[in-house]
Simulated assay, not measured.
Amino acid sequence: MTNSDYLIKAAIKKVTEKLNEILVDKIEEATNIAQDAPVILKKEFDSLKESIIEEASRMEKVENIQENESANTYQDSKIKKALNEIEDINKQIDLLNKTINIQMK
């Protein structure tokens, strides 16, 4: 064999060794990531679940506030109607009193 043959064989051997080393390292990395993936996914799922629950709670509070405001508005309109009726009755009583006072004179 010539020197160039040895150089070519040595280059091929060293490149193959380096590629195998890189491949083994990448397989170990992938294995570690695969082992951590369930933990990472669980954390992300728990975080998502927590934010969904918080949003549902917030939406429920907003709806309850709107329902209370609606009920209060309904009650306010009933109160206004009752006050108007009382005012009308008071006007009728005043008119009746004036009429009675005029007749008594």
Results as ranks from 00 to 15, higher is better:
residue 1 M to Q: 05
residue 1 M to H: 09
residue 2 T to S: 14
residue 2 T to C: 13
residue 3 N to M: 13
residue 4 S to Y: 14
residue 4 S to E: 13
residue 4 S to F: 14
residue 5 D to P: 00
residue 6 Y to E: 15
residue 6 Y to A: 15
residue 7 L to H: 10
residue 8 I to K: 03
residue 8 I to E: 02
residue 9 K to D: 04
residue 9 K to R: 06
residue 9 K to S: 08
residue 11 A to N: 03
residue 11 A to I: 07
residue 13 K to G: 13
residue 15 V to E: 07
residue 16 T to D: 08
residue 17 E to V: 12
residue 19 L to V: 10
residue 19 L to G: 01
residue 19 L to S: 02
residue 19 L to H: 08
residue 19 L to D: 03
residue 20 N to K: 07
residue 22 I to A: 06
residue 26 K to H: 11
residue 26 K to N: 12
residue 27 I to R: 02
residue 28 E to M: 01
residue 28 E to H: 06
residue 29 E to S: 10
residue 29 E to G: 08
residue 30 A to S: 09
residue 31 T to W: 03
residue 31 T to F: 02
residue 32 N to W: 07
residue 32 N to L: 04
residue 33 I to K: 07
residue 34 A to M: 05
residue 34 A to Y: 04
residue 34 A to R: 00
residue 37 A to I: 12
residue 38 P to N: 00
residue 38 P to F: 01
residue 38 P to W: 01
residue 40 I to F: 06
residue 40 I to E: 05
residue 40 I to G: 00
residue 41 L to E: 00
residue 41 L to I: 03
residue 41 L to T: 07
residue 42 K to G: 00
residue 42 K to I: 06
residue 42 K to F: 00
residue 43 K to C: 09
residue 43 K to D: 06
residue 43 K to R: 14
residue 43 K to S: 10
residue 45 F to W: 14
residue 46 D to R: 03
residue 46 D to A: 02
residue 46 D to L: 00
residue 47 S to Q: 02
residue 47 S to L: 00
residue 48 L to E: 07
residue 48 L to S: 10
residue 49 K to C: 03
residue 50 E to Q: 04
residue 51 S to I: 10
residue 51 S to N: 13
residue 53 I to T: 11
residue 53 I to A: 06
residue 54 E to A: 15
residue 55 E to K: 06
residue 55 E to H: 07
residue 56 A to N: 13
residue 58 R to I: 15
residue 59 M to T: 13
residue 61 K to S: 11
residue 62 V to H: 07
residue 63 E to W: 12
residue 63 E to G: 13
residue 65 I to H: 00
residue 65 I to K: 03
residue 66 Q to C: 14
residue 66 Q to D: 13
residue 68 N to F: 15
residue 68 N to C: 15
residue 70 S to N: 01
residue 71 A to P: 03
residue 71 A to Q: 02
residue 72 N to W: 02
residue 74 Y to H: 09
residue 78 K to A: 06
residue 79 I to D: 06
residue 79 I to L: 05
residue 80 K to I: 04
residue 81 K to V: 09
residue 83 L to D: 05
residue 83 L to E: 07
residue 84 N to I: 07
residue 84 N to D: 04
residue 85 E to W: 05
residue 86 I to G: 05
residue 86 I to W: 00
residue 87 E to F: 15
residue 87 E to Y: 14
residue 90 N to F: 15
residue 91 K to H: 07
residue 92 Q to K: 10
residue 93 I to G: 02
residue 93 I to S: 06
residue 94 D to Q: 11
residue 94 D to P: 02
residue 96 L to S: 12
residue 96 L to A: 13
residue 98 K to W: 05
residue 99 T to E: 02
residue 100 I to M: 04
residue 101 N to G: 11
residue 101 N to L: 08
residue 101 N to E: 08
residue 102 I to P: 08
residue 102 I to M: 13
residue 102 I to S: 13
residue 102 I to N: 12
residue 105 K to G: 10
residue 105 K to N: 11
